[in-house]
Write a protein that binds this DNA or RNA. Sequence first.
DNA 1: ATATAGAACCTTGCATTGCAAAGTACCCCA
DNA 2: TGGGGTACTTTGCAATGCAAGGTTCTATAT
Lengths: 113, 113
Amino acid sequence: MKTDNIQRQMKKGVLEMCILAIISRREVYTSDIIEKLKEAELIVVEGTLYPMLSRLKSAGYLEYSWRESKYGPPRKYYQLTEAGSEFLNNLEGSWGKLVNSVENIVEKNTNHE
Amino acid sequence: MKTDNIQRQMKKGVLEMCILAIISRREVYTSDIIEKLKEAELIVVEGTLYPMLSRLKSAGYLEYSWRESKYGPPRKYYQLTEAGSEFLNNLEGSWGKLVNSVENIVEKNTNHE
DNA sequence: ATATAGAACCTTGCATTGCAAAGTACCCCA
DNA sequence: TGGGGTACTTTGCAATGCAAGGTTCTATAT
């Protein structure tokens, strides 16, 4: 159990929410998302993101449109669907509950030395 | 992607921290831990907890001592090791960072309607 | 034309791990 | 001796983050 794994494990389950949140702000493509996450110090790599976006698309939470780029092949720009907005709301609710639960447990144990 | 899975996915990675936090308060055995988690509305079942405790034990973060019970077979009461305390501190640090990161991402997108 | 570089997308395989379900072992009491 | 309750353990499955490798497209230099 390495320290490296800690952040990784914890990220699980909130990544979808973060990605949907980023897309909800404005249409973005994959590299934009990676950059936004990096700004928030949540490192994510392509191998994680592409399958994730596919899953969210299959689930009906996302759509995309192709746009050309001057610097390379065309890009997939993602947008949230109605269902995606709802889902994001649910995720944010669950996240809030989880944060509360964890604080209940952890704070009781903090020995303020 | 069912709503049922949301909480489950998010729980991943913080469970270890919560369990260590609970054990750090006082010596407990498995059923105690389940009950404490339930109080905080973090439902965990035996099939999750036992392998987890074994992992934490193998990693050197926990020790246990057997104690007899009036009501059944003896119980394993867990205590944190030195390494376990350190690890718990790390986890709490990572957790704090993650909460900040997520808030950075999510709050920027909240349209306070 | 051809080669090179770089951007963007996608796929495969692995390791981790929460969980359901089934199994084992112990204790008490009638 | 048998039944019920408690506790611990194991097996197999499904989900998923990620490393690594691959394909396709554009632009630029030769």
